[in-house]
Every structure is written in structure tokens, then in C-alpha cells.
């Protein structure tokens, strides 16, 4: 059981800055995120794209912003729980008991949801029968590549994951690579390599095709693909892999009794608390009249939510407003030596 003042759900820029604000006012926190690294959408959707509207930072990339925020919260030694999704919340007297997908448990005074548009999950095939085979012969990520040795694999997608795995697995497996158009979004060198392998007969490339159906008893046996113009091809396949990037899903947040409207959580603008006492929501996931989905708004919301958490974490103390420029206490928490 991890005991801390506040649990932050989501390690995007808003969640990270909220951790900073909690640290400044002397509260401890830990952060849970479903991705394998901090940064949220900044890292997952646009790590290399420049951002121009962070106050006092004329230009930075999503990755730079994340690294700077991590640097900024370093003095507080915030503990991260990555690859974990918060599943269950339970109120126990005045505190919350929280459990993640991986069984990590927390005992906290307050919760700040900074979950963006939800947790990132792999985007799946639209074909319904695919669900039946998911996890045994159909995958959206690869954990153990040895199972594919000497098998026939059908890989769908045109990005780097699809291309890289097609190239790698073609060494030990029979690979079909299927993509919806002639162009690819993956690296040019990989596209070149795939075309060479196709010419050499070391893999089969099908473009302008998409998955039509999968058949099999317990495991996939047969795959049908359909051309733009309607032609159907079918071939034997032991495994199907789909690489269509990630999509964001609200997931268990829907079950926590929060007022939710159009995939966002309603909050008040005084301290960004939700309709449930002790649960706050900040950043893209919260909504209120005038809400702007900007990172800078998330910072403001995080600063106020942190102060809103104070009364739950330290009910007998009064929070005094201070500036970091002059507050001895804040500077001590930041580890500044004079």
C-alpha cells in the first residue's frame, strides 16, 4: 500500500505541473499513467512538433516540455507508476483507497484526474470476429516474438511498427504485409527495405487492401483481405498483427460517479473539484464554462486543484499563500541552499 497525500492520474504536462504545485505547498503525491513514460499526449502524439504557446517559452517540442517539467519536479522525488491504469476507487472514512490494473494500491487524501482524453489504448480492427482471437492469435503489440517462428503472420498497417516488425519477422516467419494505400507513414528506409524483401520473395506486400474477415476455430487459420476495388484475396495465416497506433479511452473513469458530459468531467472553477468531494479534474479532461484546451490552462487548473487538495490532506492546518521568490518554506521544499 502506497500512502501519500494526493494521487495524480495522468503524467501529461498538467499532471506533472500539479505535482510541482503540490510539492510547493508541502503535500506529497504519486503519479499513475497507462503509458510507459511521462508526457501524455505531448510525448505520444507530438514529441517532435513545436509548441508556441507556453508562456515565456517561445518555442519547444512536446518532448522538451516534458523534460523541463520533470526537471522542475525533481526536488519533490515524485514516485511514478507507469504502465498502470487506475481501475477502482473506494472512499474509506476521510480517505480514498485506489487500485490499479496491475494491483498497485494507494491510500490517499485526494485524487487529481489529469487524464487528458483518457488512457491510450491500441486501436483495434473494425472487424468484429477479431475480438474472439485477441490475445491468442491476434495481437496489437508483441511481447514474445519467438511464438512467430516458422509461422505465417499477416501484419496490417503502414507506420513504423508495422514496417519494422514485417522486416524483422520476415527472417524467421512467412510474412504478409497489408496496407490500405501505396504510401506509407513509416521511415523511407524501412519502406525501401520492405519493397526489396517483397521483390526478393521474402515477404508478400499487399497494398490498397484492408482486412475483410478472419476465420478459425480456436486460433486464426484463414485471413481474407479486400482490395479498394472489391477483389478479395484469402490466405492461410497463423497470426494477425494490427498496428494502427493508439486511441484514447476514458475507461474506468466513467464508473466513478462523476458528472461526465461529452467525455469530459464537470468541475467548479474555484478549485477544480468534481461533484465528488476529494476528486479533482484538471487539463483536457475537465470542462467548465469557458474551458480552453490549452496546456497553459491546465497549469492554472493544477495550481488551484493542488490548493484544493490541502484541506483533505491537512484538515487541521491553514494554507498560507506564499510566493516561491520569498517563501522560506517553499524554497526549502525545492531544496534551494542559500
Amino acid at each position: 500500500m502506497n500512502k501519500t497525500d494526493v494521487l495524480i492520474i495522468g503524467a501529461g504536462p498538467t499532471g506533472l505541473f500539479c505535482a510541482h504545485q503540490l510539492g510547493i505547498i508541502g503535500l506529497s503525491c504519486e503519479i499513475v499513467d497507462n503509458l510507459d513514460k511521462a508526457g501524455g499526449q505531448c510525448i505520444e502524439l507530438y514529441p517532435d512538433k513545436p509548441i508556441y504557446d507556453i508562456p515565456a517559452v517561445p518555442e519547444c517540442t512536446g518532448e522538451e516540455l516534458t523534460n523541463n517539467l520533470l526537471q522542475q519536479i525533481k526536488p519533490f522525488n515524485v514516485k511514478f507508476h507507469l504502465n498502470e491504469r487506475v481501475e477502482h476507487l473506494k472512499k474509506t472514512e476521510s480517505r480514498w483507497h485506489v487500485k490499479t490494473s496491475g494491483g498497485v494500491e494507494f491510500d490517499v487524501a485526494a485524487i487529481v484526474i489529469a487524464g487528458g482524453v483518457g488512457s491510450f489504448e491500441p486501436r483495434k480492427f473494425p472487424v468484429k470476429e477479431c475480438e474472439k482471437f485477441e490475445g491468442n492469435s491476434l495481437f496489437y503489440s508483441i511481447k514474445d516474438k519467438s511464438i512467430f517462428k516458422d509461422k505465417t503472420i499477416s501484419i496490417f498497417g503502414g507506420g513504423d511498427s508495422a514496417l519494422d516488425w514485417a522486416i524483422e519477422l520476415s527472417n524467421t516467419s512467412k510474412v504478409n504485409l497489408i496496407h490500405r494505400r501505396d504510401g506509407f507513414s513509416g521511415a523511407d528506409s524501412s519502406v525501401q527495405k520492405v519493397k526489396e524483401l517483397n521483390d526478393q520473395g521474402k515477404l508478400n506486400l499487399y497494398t490498397k487492401f484492408q482486412l475483410d474477415s478472419v476465420m478459425g476455430d480456436k486460433n486464426i487459420e484463414l485471413v481474407k483481405i479486400k482490395h479498394d476495388e472489391g477483389e478479395i484475396k484469402e490466405f492461410k495465416s497463423d497470426y494477425v498483427l494490427g498496428f494502427f497506433g493508439l486511441i484514447m479511452q476514458l475507461g474506468p473513469i466513467l464508473d466513478w460517479g462523476l458528472n461526465i458530459d461529452k467525455k469530459t468531467v464537470q468541475v467548479n472553477t474555484e478549485n477544480f473539484e468534481t461533484n465528488v468531494q476529494g476528486i479533482f479534474a484538471i487539463g483536457d479532461i475537465c470542462s467548465y464554462p469557458g474551458k480552453l484546451k490549452l496546456i497553459l490552462s491546465g497549469f492554472h487548473e493544477g495550481a488551484l486543484a493542488a490548493r484544493g487538495c490541502f484541506k483533505y490532506a491537512k484538515p487541521d492546518e491553514k494554507l498560507r499563500f506564499e510566493f516561491t521568490t520569498t517563501s522560506k518554506a517553499a524554497q526549502e521544499r525545492l531544496g534551494i541552499k542559500k
Partner: peptide, 13 residues
């Protein structure tokens, strides 16, 4: 845009 459409649900021409 076309790269993003690769990720979309049932993309068509």
C-alpha cells in the same frame, strides 16, 4: 493527413 487516416476506423477512398 493521409498518414493519420491510416489509423482511422475503416478508412475509405
Amino acid at each position: 493527413e493521409e498518414d493519420m487516416l491510416d489509423m482511422a476506423f475503416e478508412p475509405k477512398n
